[in-house]
Design a protein around this nucleic acid. Structure first.
Lengths: 333, 333
DNA sequence: ATAAATAAGTAAAACGTTTTACTATTCAAT
DNA sequence: ATTGAATAGTAAAACGTTTTACTTATTTAT
């Protein structure tokens, strides 16, 4: 069965293609098409199950009703939850999402942007990585709506939605100190994005403010692409060698690895070692003992992203960029 | 800056559009274009950064190099992991994925299929729900490649990749019985797909085979869209009222809710109550005590899906449908 | 009775490709 | 010298829409 085209409908109704198009797009009344014709054509469309070819539509109009979502890794629950929320909200406005994971690989990310470009997506929601500055700038120059989230890139004037990571780690360290902890460790990644450096800065600043000297040996920077076994080995060393009495994990997957390591040792979380994880996860809630975590307001972040992008999509003029930063909350467990 | 078209390249190179198109598509040698022209054009393309408009390409060729992935919920870790694996493998073959979540809503799922159709995706990977039979049949009639996974729909002759759920629940119950458990409960959902009914059947059959009478009161069917608080209340009742001594959860999100409930009670997992969850999750590994789980071979499932769909995509003739069923493994913890 | 305005609708160009069928030139073989 | 094939390339149609500029018939205002 050949799929129907607008022409088939036009022939069937005995009117021109133009007329059918006007009707489909709700411009019939504007263009003074009679009620009788409108009814007739609508009936034929409904009965035939005709659906406009979006590809042809895109080619002609230059837009696609698709938003491209570029994230680090869809299998990370932080991203998959955000993705779900964004998808949901976008869907209600008639937009679809195409997503892809960068795996923190600059080349892959660039390809993704290109591929989204050549598919004429209407807007971009990106959790960026270093090295993408030029490509993103190009999108901006072409005046495509772009929203960065979770991370921003210095030197790029864009819309941004994220959380106050500096404050979150600062307060985490503060809470350790108030519990009497002295040897506070940070497990973070080497990826070079503002969000991650902010976390380190907050950590350092809190130490300094409370008169504890920063000790490099207490900071573990894990490479993003390294094997989990190696990560675990490094953590094991950190937890045992030094008499660390608190550890702050800068991402949830690091915290999960860390908890696996700790499970093998005799170290008692809460007693010998206080732990705070970043980005809440069911694991932390169900763990015995419960693991405190920095919780970003996912729902609000997703809402802000979608608001911003929809606003841009529907405005003909270039709007001012906005930076929206939410406070994260420490869930004490 | 207007985006470049093939015409711009043609003009710049002083050749026809046709020639440029042949070169882009690697048909130049076939079509006897001289090396000199090929080199020249390729150079111009590289320098200008021209990228073909995929929309126009799709319109002309009728395919998109996009595979549509329809799942229940991207924020469920089972699906997000599968999605990630599929995305990865598809990407390597030059295919992109568009995904969307159905939330087990038939209407939404139908709309998604339509939207994928009108975007001319080349193939469909679907974790289906009851009520989609006709729409999927239509895709098959239009001879589009379709792979169902995780669940199949009775009466539909398609490719399918999944796990042997009957066996998995059978063995789970068996393992409970061998531990001396008698009052074995099943917490499952009401969604009416084969994969879920199979799980129930395996549970029943094992009971019967071991001479335990099936007791309806021990089976809790949770509605997919109900509030988590209600689910928890129902579970609480189940765990306390009856002297249940084992519980098998038919999905990971149900198990997670269940563990949250159990955490509030004095019931000791492993002592008063044996637990097995379905679809492994970090929570189960890290839980104290560890929670046994039925683990589907995600990597193999994803690989099989992608193999099947790529094979269909590259074959001109209609291939025989295949049903690939993997054994799931019970991870004892 | 006529000009102007409105109603009802359409023809055709355009979006950016791919592909078919064609032309023109050169070369090799008889 | 002529034919047939190979070489090198191109013109134009087609994919399915949207949209601009137009036509024709009817109504309204004078």
């Amino acid at each position: 069965m050949k799929t129907l085209s607008i022409k088939d409908i036009a022939v069937e109704a005995g009117v021109s293609i133009t007329t059918v198009s006007f009707i489909i797009n709700g411009k019939a009344r504007d263009k003074s098409i009679s009620e009788a014709v409108i009814k007739k054509v609508e009936k034929i469309i409904a009965e035939s199950g005709y659906k406009p070819n979006q590809i042809a539509r895109s080619l002609r109009t230059g837009n696609s009703n698709i938003i491209g979502l570029i994230i680090e890794d869809i299998s990370n629950s932080f991203f998959s939850r955000i993705a779900r929320l964004i998808e949901d909200k976008a869907y209600k406005k008639g937009y679809k999402i195409i997503y892809s994971s960068t795996e923190n690989n600059v080349e892959k990310a660039k390809e993704l942007i290109n591929m989204f470009k050549s598919r004429k997506v209407d807007g971009y929601i990106i959790s960026p990585i270093k090295g993408l500055e030029e490509d993103i700038q190009q999108l901006l120059t072409d005046s495509k709506p772009v929203i960065l989230f979770d991370r921003s890139l210095p030197g790029l004037d864009t819309n941004y939605v994220g959380a106050d990571h500096f404050k979150a780690t600062y307060e985490s360290v503060e809470s350790f100190i108030k519990q009497g902890r002295k040897k506070i460790s940070l497990v973070t990644t080497d990826i070079d994005v503002q969000q991650i450096t902010e976390r380190l800065d907050g950590y350092k600043k809190a130490l300094v403010d409370y008169g504890i000297t920063y000790d490099e040996n207490l900071v573990l920077k894990v490479y993003f692409n390294q094997e989990e076994s190696e990560t675990r080995a490094q953590m094991e060393k950190l937890f045992s060698n030094v008499e660390t009495d608190a550890v702050l994990f800068a991402t949830n997957y690091l915290a999960i690895s860390g908890l696996k390591v700790l499970k093998q040792t005799k170290i008692k979380i809460g007693k010998n070692l206080s732990v705070i994880a970043y980005d809440d996860h069911e694991v932390f809630e169900l763990h015995t003992p419960g693991i405190s975590a920095v919780q970003q307001p996912l729902e609000e972040i997703a809402e802000a992203i979608i608001q911003l992008i929809l606003r841009q999509l529907s405005s003909k003029t270039k709007l001012d960029n906005e930076q929206i930063v939410f406070s994260a909350k420490i869930i004490q467990r």
